[in-house]
Design a protein around this nucleic acid. Structure first.
Lengths: 168, 168
DNA sequence: TCGTTTGTTCGAGATGAACCGAACAAAGTG
DNA sequence: CACTTTGTTCGGTTCATCTCGAACAAACGA
C-alpha cells in the first residue's frame, strides 16, 4: 500500500521535527504539533490537533500559543464564521529561523551590549586596565554580530547564499 | 576606589554571561566559569576556579569538561611541569559561535537531511502527493542552509560583515 | 612509604519544565 | 433556557538537569 508508505514517510519527518525542536529550545510536543500542521492541507483546530497528536487539550492550547508567539504557526480566527480558532503552519522555514534569530539572539545581543556599555562607563578612564580591554573586545564583537543579524534579516535564503558565494 | 569599580564592572559582565549561557542551552555555572576564565590573566586550575566561583569541585570538573568539549575553553595540561590541569578561555567569541554552529546546528541539519532523503526515497514516484512536495520543500531549504553554514564557517566576523555589506 | 593535592565519578537532594486531567469561561445550537 | 463545543487556566505528577558532598584514583612531595 503506497498510502501506508506516505504515512510512514510523513511520520518520520515529523519525528525528525520533534528532534529538531529540542535543539531549538522547544519541547517535543511543539515539534510534533508543528509537524502535523506543516503537512495539513488546511488550518486545524485544537480538537483536531488533540486527535492527531494524542496530546492533552491543555498541552495543545499552551503549545499553540507559544508557537504562535514565535511565529512558527499562525492563528486563522473567524475563518468559517465559527468561533473555532484554527492554526496554520508557517512553511517558509527560513522565515522561522530569521524570526527566532530576531527574537532570541538579537534580544540577547542587545541585553549584553547594554550591560557592556554600562560596565565600560563605570571603568576609570586613565587606568586602561586589562579588564577594560577585555570588555571592549566583547563589545566590538557583539556590535559586529548585531550588524550581521541586521544585515541578514532582510535577505531570503537564496539571497544570503548568493551574497556569500559572491564574496570569495 | 577604582579597583572596586573594576571588580563591580567585571562582576556585571560575568552575570551577563550567566544569563547568556542559559540562552545558549548551558547552565549558569558554565557562564560564570567561562566568565572568570575570560578575565583571568593566566590559565586557572580547578581549585582556583572553585575558590573564585564558589561552586563545588565536582561541578567545576563537570562544567570544565563540557566547556572544553564545546571549544569554549581549552585545557592547558603539562604547562608548568605539574600535573595540574589548567583552563584558558577562548576569547574569540566569534570562534565559539562558529563552533557551536558546526557542532549543534550543522549536525542537526545533516540529521534532518538524512531523514528527508530517506523519506523521499520511500515515496511512490508517480503519485506526486502533496506530502512529497512538502518534503522536497524542506529538503531544498535545508540544503541551502547547509551550504550557507559551510560558506560562513571559514569567514571571520569582519569578513562576514564585509560580504553582507557588499551585497546591497 | 605515607600524607597531600588534584581531578573524576557516584549517589542524593533540589529545582524547573513538560504534560495531563479537571475545572472554568465563552459562545453557538436545540 | 439547557446543552454542547471550544479554548484557557490551574494544580499536580513525572522526569530531566543542576549542583553538592563524599568516595575514589592518580600523582607529587617529604
Amino acid at each position: 500500500m503506497s498510502s501506508e508508505d506516505v504515512a510512514q514517510a510523513r511520520e518520520r519527518v515529523i519525528e525528525s521535527m520533534e528532534q529538531s525542536a529540542e535543539v531549538y529550545g522547544l519541547s517535543r510536543s511543539a515539534g510534533r504539533i508543528y509537524g502535523v500542521l506543516y503537512f495539513a492541507e488546511e488550518p486545524l483546530s485544537i480538537p483536531t490537533l488533540v486527535e492527531a497528536t494524542g496530546y492533552a487539550k491543555s498541552t495543545v492550547s499552551n503549545v499553540t500559543r507559544k508557537l504562535s508567539r514565535l511565529g512558527l504557526i499562525h492563528r486563522r480566527s473567524s475563518d468559517g464564521g465559527g468561533r473555532r480558532v484554527r492554526f496554520e503552519a508557517e512553511r517558509e522555514v527560513w522565515f522561522i529561523i530569521q524570526d527566532v534569530f530576531q527574537q532570541y539572539i538579537d534580544r540577547e545581543i542587545q541585553a549584553s551590549l547594554r550591560t557592556l556599555q554600562r560596565a565600560e562607563g563605570q571603568l576609570p578612564a586613565e587606568g586602561r586596565s586589562h579588564e577594560a580591554e577585555r570588555i571592549q573586545d566583547l563589545r566590538d564583537t557583539y556590535e559586529d554580530l548585531q550588524e550581521i543579524v541586521a544585515l541578514t534579516s532582510g535577505l531570503s535564503v537564496s539571497e544570503l547564499r548568493e551574497a556569500l558565494e559572491a564574496y570569495e
